[in-house]
Nucleic acid binder design. Structure first.
Lengths: 197, 197
DNA sequence: CCTATAAATACTAATTATGTATTTTAAGTA
DNA sequence: TACTTAAAATACATAATTAGTATTTATAGG
């Protein structure tokens, strides 16, 4: 793993703090600089511009996700634990970004957004092996792995679509919880079932 | 009570939503208009400008505080209930405004901020009669009402000072909780006291 | 079809932000 | 002390955005 310039990291931390709170557009370079008691020139010496900072932030976020995901997969054997751990990870790591930053991205930084979608699709596909494994072990019931993977992919795609979230007036976290619930327990409520044997 | 134009209210609601979230400066008239699917001209027909909207918002907030405060004072007899009720009211009604809007105000809208300080001082002074009442009834212990009032006023002043909040890196709610705690239970922790009789 | 009203759009002047150039300050070094 | 380096502070030019206004288009009622 490449270790980055600690000053770069500080700049990214300050930018991240503000951009999670306000999104990309409303954060100015002056604000980032003054948060750090740092000259704007120092920032421009390390980053070509505001957009470069956003790119670096997304890249760092992806690295962090990768890292934590790897740890989860290494730590646990049980596919169900990995599955729920991954969902929890997405919830906590990605959730705050969706409030402002990611919901702006498709319009403000379409190129970067495309890149992120690409990353997302790649990562989500890694769930396929997990579902196949769980299917073999009988944990995920007699579910067709291909269908399950495709359905899961579709669900996550929908949930990570800022337009959808805004339309439904729900947070990323709420949407993710719903997906997790369906995947874990199904959509039929058996607690007060009308079905009689 | 004067009943306002419902369209004005809608505009204020939209502005309030955004300005609580982003502060005064970062909210644009275009955003407010498009949130409401409304022409900017319609807004400018009802409000002279952006600053007028902020003034109306603060005025409305003050009216709401007044109203709820009156209800609390009418509903309860016990001064302690009124006291804790008032603190809780400030916490919930005023808290969200301090995150961005009020912390910007001294710099962005100094005139309006002065007005608000004036309102605050007036309202807080009404606590004097409450403390006097509580003192007589023995609820507030043998506390000098003048000193208690002045001290309380000072505490609230400090807590409603955006610069102080930023310096201490605490939220308005946290600061208010601390004041409430001191006022209710004192600052000496008797639970594990070193004082022996 | 006419009128009134407000949304949608277009526009101007003023403000603000990005990115760069210049000056000041500060800390270390010969 | 004088010199050097590096970054902060300041100033600035150009590009972009915003407040506020004027104009056009859409819509609903008579």
């Amino acid at each position: 793993m490449k270790k980055n310039d600690p000053i770069q990291e500080k700049i990214l931390n300050a930018a991240e703090k503000r951009m999670i709170k306000f999104g990309y557009r409303k954060v100015t370079m002056d604000e980032i600089a003054s948060d750090l008691h740092m000259s704007k020139n120092t920032i421009y010496k390390l980053f070509a511009g505001k957009e470069e900072i956003a790119k670096a932030l997304v890249k760092r976020l992806q690295q962090q996700l990768d890292e934590t995901m790897d740890n989860i997969e290494k730590r646990y054997e049980d596919p169900m634990k990995i599955f729920s751990g991954s969902i929890l990870l997405l919830r906590s790591q990605l959730g705050p970004w969706f409030e402002h930053f990611f919901s702006e991205m498709p319009a403000e930084l379409p190129g970067l957004w495309e890149e992120f979608l690409h990353f997302r699709n790649e990562k989500i596909l890694s769930i396929r092996s997990l579902i196949e494994k769980g299917s073999k072990n009988g944990i995920f019931r007699g579910v067709n792995p291909s269908i399950a993977t495709e359905a899961y992919l579709g669900a996550i795609k929908a949930v990570t679509n800022p337009r959808f979230l805004e339309q439904e007036k729900i947070t990323f976290e709420q949407a993710l919880d719903a997906v997790y619930n369906i995947w874990s327990y199904g959509i039929v409520d058996l607690s007060d079932s009308h079905v009689t044997i």
